[in-house]
Nucleic acid binder design. Structure first.
Lengths: 252, 252
DNA sequence: ATCATAGTCGTCTGCCTGACGATAAACACT
DNA sequence: AGTGTTTATCGTCAGGCAGACGACTATGAT
């Protein structure tokens, strides 16, 4: 049995990406327009086939670079120059999830700071950042009132799972800094939490919390006034990845 | 491109299982002995190919039933008669993880109460419960002094990831009850936490904590004395899946 | 000058936690 | 029957953290 290729059914394996960022106070995901059937013209998550000699994380990093120009952020390299956080999310393998053939998709979650306009093979009209509520509003209407078709395949489920992962993971890890530029203020970090969780946080308690959690933030010494108001201290992400004590998400 | 099978490399897709239980105060995993190369005679995690018409979770549930006789516990069914908790863990797809061919393995994590001896296709000598430290002690020695070979393939990594998932998930979810029989005492639940985390917990504070967390435990009215000492109240798992406030794992 | 905006520092109160004393109810001895 | 051992359960107390919120600071806009 071991070497007989007929002993197991062949699968296609893909990686799909949930790329999240925070723009204009709302959590947005990268969506690309499908150029071919099935689901031609519909929005979908970026992704593609895993190549013959690639590891899954390599394939995800390659797709991420192709779609956004971002370098995947190796967990071992804390200096996040232009790197996004990238981690495996979950794997989706319903026999009917792709009408053409049996496809197993290993979804990955990427978190990136706010970026300029996306590019999908150089074609800007086929890729965009969209608020996740808009992408998940099945058959609803977008911000400009036009009807929005649901995402292709099972990508709505994948996106929902990715958003939920991000929401819960910024609670007990320093992952929220992956949404920020290399240097950021406490207020910018707070707006990340507010956008991802969709809640308002008390600026004073938030400030006390994040500056008091060891290893979360290290001051750079500089200040900025890019938000208006009194100048704010600039910070970099500290070495800690697990927050102790964790940030607490307010009750529903 | 869409319908051309030559456009993507074919993969074999398997499910591997990390089946955990608590026996004799220690966290144990199910291991099976490989009967064929590669890694013939070595211990490995149970698993097998995903069939053509199966979803990944169905394949995992089927393998679990074949190896242990357990029914997979659907998250929607809170009554855990003889059902184990089953959830997807992660997917492993290094091109060289199987020397024969390109295999992507979707690992699943199963948590079960203490069971009678395992069976692997009816052959008891080819399946066993082993303490996870023993299985993870690369090239170390088992409890009876005989040398232990490391697990086959990348199964040591998969097992380590599964154990870590279990350790962190019993902190903020009611998953620890999946290690207990349908009715159990606070002391039995505490010994689960102690075995999984490998720490000693204060019985008084633990009792206050779990009985005070809403939805975690519901008293059945009965008592038992199977642990010796004063009779203890019996409880069933409550409906809550997420614990608020969470259990706190003591510091390192 | 005045206002609006955003940041930062304090205070107070209630809740949770860890440490630990005390009591209760079974069993195993003598 | 009495005594010790084991496990379960209840209480107390001090320290720490979180939410609510007042106060003050430093900038730009009018």
């Amino acid at each position: 049995m071991p070497y007989d290729p007929s002993a197991f059914p062949p699968f296609a394996v893909t990686v799909d990406l949930v790329v999240l960022t925070v723009r204009r106070h709302s959590l947005c995901a990268l969506a690309v327009r499908r150029g071919e059937p099935p689901f031609q013209g519909r929005w979908a998550l970026p992704g593609g086939f895993v190549r013959d000699d690639e590891d899954l994380s390599q394939a995800a990093a390659r797709e991420l670079a192709e779609e956004t120009g971002l370098c995947a952020h190796d967990p071992a390299a804390p200096a996040q120059d232009n790197g996004a956080h990238l981690e495996q999310l979950a794997t989706y393998g319903d026999p009917k999830r792709d009408p053409r053939m049996r496809v197993v998709s290993v979804a990955h979650l990427a978190l990136a700071p706010d970026l300029p306009a996306p590019r999908a093979g150089g074609d800007a009209s086929n890729a965009r950042w969209a608020p996740v509520e808009e992408l998940l509003a099945q058959g609803g209407y977008g911000r400009d009132g036009e009807p929005v078709a649901p995402l292709a395949f099972d990508h709505a489920q994948i996106l929902a799972d990715g958003v939920e992962r991000a929401r819960s993971k910024i609670e007990y890890s320093s992952l929220a800094t992956a949404f920020c530029p290399p240097e950021f203020t406490v207020g910018e970090l707070r707006r990340v939490y507010e956008a991802v969780w969709g809640v308002a946080l008390d600026p004073r308690n938030f400030h006390r919390k994040v500056t008091g959690t060891p290893g979360f933030l290290v001051p750079t010494g500089g200040t900025t006034t890019r938000q208006g108001g009194r100048p704010a201290q600039l910070f970099r992400a500290g070495g800690a990845t697990l927050l102790n004590p964790p940030m607490l998400r307010p009750e529903v």
